[in-house]
């Protein structure tokens, strides 16, 4: 689904300034807040899913191969996933230009 970040003029506002597109915050890519990104070492990953449930962004998902990975469009780099990972297969890598 495409999320348009439409900024309506005041004359075009819905009644009660209702927002009619659910989940439209996906248009805001919060990934640029990040100073470090989580990197998975799949050889050590046991696919337990602890990182998936503890991600405050909800941006970590299981891939088709069963290994989780973060959607870097939204990951804010909080570092909860490496801290909670039971096998220590996630590490934070500094973002470089």
């Amino acid at each position: 689904m495409a999320y348009q970040n439409a900024r309506p003029k005041w004359t075009e506002l819905a009644v009660g300034t209702a927002v009619t597109c659910p989940g439209s915050s996906r248009a805001t890519k919060t990934g640029d807040w990040r100073s470090a990104r989580p990197v998975w070492t799949n050889e050590h990953c046991v696919k337990c899913g602890v990182c998936v449930i503890f991600c405050p962004e909800g941006c970590i998902q299981f891939q088709a191969d069963g290994y989780p990975t973060a959607d870097l469009d939204y990951c804010k780099g909080c570092g909860i996933c490496p801290h909670e990972c039971p096998t220590g297969c996630i590490r934070m890598q500094d973002e470089v230009e």
Binding site: P22, R26, T28, V52, K76, G79
Partner: peptide, 25 residues
Amino acid sequence: FAARLWPTENRFASGHRACQGCAEA
């Protein structure tokens, strides 16, 4: 793995402006 039984649908979509590591979000 019990963690994998967790409901995967995200009803509180990504892109919200919570601080890093917000446990409230």
